[in-house]
Every structure is written in C-alpha cells, then in structure tokens.
Amino acid sequence: MRHIEFEKIAKTVESLCISAAYELPDDVLAALEKAAKAESAPGAARILNQLIENARIAKTESIPLCQDTGLVVVFVEQGTDVAVKLPADQTQATLFDAINSGVKAACENGYLRKSVVADPLNHRKNTDSNTPAVIHHSIIPGDKLKIAVMTKGGGCENKSQFKMFKPTADRDQIIDWVVDVAKQAGADACPPFVVGVGIGGNFELSCLLSKKALLRDLTSKNADDFYAELEADLLSRINALGIGPQGIGGNTTALACLVETAPCHIASLPVAVNIECHSHRHKPAVI
C-alpha cells in the first residue's frame, strides 16, 4: 500500500484550482485562435481576439480569467494500492477532506471568488471558502491518485439540460434536441461553448457523463466512429445556428462537442447536455 500525505493532496488541489483560474488550457486557446482566423464576421473575430488577449493578461498578471472562478468539480481516481496518510490531529479525515482543504486554500491564496452558498434555498449563506467541492470518486488499478479539477462557472451550468427520450428515438431526434439546448443557452452562457453530451446510463449517470466529457482534449474524437460522427454533426449544426461569440452573430457558436456514452435500461434513452463557456478551465495531476 502506498500512503500519500493528506497535505500533499491538499497542496496539489490548491495548485490545480489556482492555475485553472489563471491559465486557459492550451487546447482551448488553440481552438479560440483557430476560430478567430476562420471567422468571417469582423465583430465576431474581434471578440475572439479579445478573449485571447484576456487569456494573455490573466496568465501574465495572475488575474482570474473570469470573475466567476466557479464551483470546483473534482474527478478523483484512486488506485487500489493508495491510502491517505492523515495528520496526527485529524484521524477522522478522508480523501474528500484533503480535496476540500485544497479548495479552501486556493480560494484564499489565489484570490478566487467565494461563489458557494451553504444552503440552496434557506438563507443562501456564503460558505466563505468556496467549499464544498463537488467530488466524483472512482477506483482504478495501481498506486496512483489521479485528480482532475474543473472550475465551472454558474452562467453556463445554468443552461445545462437533461431529457429522457423514448428508447426508439433516433439519432436525428437527439441531434435536434442537443442543438436546441445550445440555442436556448444562446448569448447568456458565454459562447463559444464547449458542449458536453452524456448519452445512456440512467438519470444521474448521463449528467455525470456530460460533465466528464468536458475533460477531453477539444481536438479529440470519440473512439467509436458512430459517436465521432455524431460529435462532428452536432458541432456543425450548433455552429450553423449563427449565435456567434457573445451572441452577436458569427460562425463560432461552439468550439467542440464531446459525447460520452454508457449502457442503459431497455426502456430508457437518457441524454444530458452540459453547457460550458469558452472560459473552459480544468487542470489534471497525477500523484
């Protein structure tokens, strides 16, 4: 069994949260640059170039890319041979506590916005620490701890949707609905989007898949040709909407559409769409 110190996990998560806030991933920046060159609408190209300039300022001056530094979503994959070594005074603590400790430290030390309230309906008092993170845990073989941090803004998350289709629904019906979700997201959700789509599983798994899809490189394709083609068709249909950067018109409404799937019940065909803004912030680490 390999023991990883609580503090090491917390420090790693802190560093991932802060770098996610300040540094746009290379694939996202490359997608914006490619789109700026390809845009035929001058207004749209200018906005894309301003977003590229924003990324430059954020990185060089350590200012968050967006004031909404997000709700922290953590995907953690724990090797079967990994255990957390707790500090002497925290014998009841867990891996999740280590992650939240890192999120809290990032909020203070990275000057990130406190965007989390303790109760959704009753008083909505801010936790003043940006905790708790939403943590998705899974087990993998080996002695590594893999952590992927995504800091997800509220504006785009608000436009995400879920729908149960009939199991006899076809590809076109799914496409029409996903495109309509992107259309409804419109100017409000900071286009150009990254569109995560989860198909299959059940109610909650399809939603989780739609979020997990967003961790993929924007130039990647689904390994299954059927779904790779679906991704390409969805992207082309969403861009044909003409919503454009910031909603003022243009060819770039989405930078990528990423589909993930899972087996499902014979009666079901669940589909979830997680809308992500152009400030697509996520960082991975392996301990």
């Binding site: 906005i47 301003q50 954020a58 890319l65 100017a187 152009h278 400030s279």
Partner: peptide, 13 residues
C-alpha cells in the same frame, strides 16, 4: 449594454 462575458481580467484593466 453588453460587455465581454468571460473576459474579467481584460475588463479589470
């Protein structure tokens, strides 16, 4: 008026 969503670093200037 609409300004640049997701460009808070640039706008802070």
């Amino acid at each position: 008026l609409s300004t640049l969503g997701g460009a808070g670093a640039l706008l802070s200037k």
